[in-house]
Design a protein around this nucleic acid. Structure first.
Lengths: 196, 196
DNA sequence: CCTACCGATCGGTAGG
DNA sequence: CCTACCGATCGGTAGG
């Protein structure tokens, strides 16, 4: 009984989170009102508070879910026996897949995190920083074992992360450019410039 | 007399625009209040309206100034006799310089344009689209004359623009990474993957 | 899940 | 450039 209720609440809250991600992406966190979110769901604004703690909780859950997904994927790759170049390619392709499958959530995580409240804001930024650090270590490994050119690893990580982040503009090109073509081109562009 | 007054108003308005760009970048357009902007300048909020038309006018002027600067630079490059690779390098370096010199303004133009009101919003997006189109034409020229590999020009433009846009994160690394090192590394990363 | 409502804050104006 | 102020909208609560 409690289980069923939890499941029902879960799906309802998930539905709210989904709509919130869509709204926050389209209008920005601060410009999105709880009334508008409620309207999209088909209830009155005060009824939202039966399922969620508040507006800022919605942002938190979106941002930390995305951060967790990326952290988990990177951890999985780090444990794999693949070459550094292969790991980099897989990571880039994962970013592409995330952008395709969870566009709203990734976009919100990338653009609206600054409205997180402390101490979550600090936590989130630390997770980001650590993700970058681990990527730098991956590149350093590739430089050591001669897979990669002797590039500046921090700059290369920044370039890669910035480029994949730009995938958010792909929405506009969805009909014109095939996703696989896009992915292969970007992977080649980013890696052929690094590969020895 | 009118000239002097205009000059005085000009500098005062410019000072407001500068502070507005800084505030909008740090907090976002919607989360920035005119009261806070006034506080930063040292006057009361209603006094702002002696120098500016309103909050949305501030955003407009920031966004269109930046867009105009980029358009002008691209036009200048298009008229030059340099090779495509050289033009691309100069364009990338211009993006880097803009990010260094007008960080707040470029950041706001990249992140807050969605709060522009019509018809300026449409105008702004058209200018962006046209900028991309002209870059695609530049790459096509380079592909035709065998300077560049046979890449997908739209994807390559997207990758380049996304990467240079990521320069906004450089603020964090300013002390660790020299600007010239950064610029050279990114140019190499982006071009060596393209160059035949 | 709803109606009724509250205190806070917003962009901007009136009038001097 | 200021004081005084307004109508609109916000996130959220009370009470059922």
């Amino acid at each position: 009984m409690a289980k069923i209720k939890a499941a029902i609440n879960g799906t309802k809250k998930d539905a709210i989170l989904k709509k919130a991600a869509s709204l926050f992406r389209a209008k920005g966190f601060k410009a999105s009102s709880m009334r508008e979110l409620a309207l999209k769901i088909g209830i009155e604004a005060p009824s939202l508070y039966n399922h969620i703690g508040g507006k800022s909780e919605l942002l938190q859950e979106i941002c930390f879910k995305v951060a967790g997904d990326f952290n988990n994927q990177l951890a999985e790759l780090e444990a794999s026996p693949d070459s550094v170049v292969s790991q980099l390619e897989q990571l880039i392709r994962f970013h592409i897949a995330m952008m395709m499958e969870s566009f709203d959530e990734v976009y919100v995580s990338n653009h609206e995190w600054k409205y997180l409240e402390e101490p979550m804001l600090t936590d989130f930024l630390q997770q980001r920083k650590q993700y970058e650090t681990r990527m730098v270590q991956l590149l350093n490994k590739g430089i050591s074992n001669k897979e990669l050119k002797n590039v500046h690893p921090q700059v290369a990580v920044l370039t890669i992360l910035s480029a994949v982040r730009g995938l958010e503009f792909w929405q506009r090109y969805k009909k014109e450019i095939d996703a696989d073509v896009l992915a292969s081109n970007m992977v080649n562009h980013l890696l052929t410039g690094l590969r020895k």
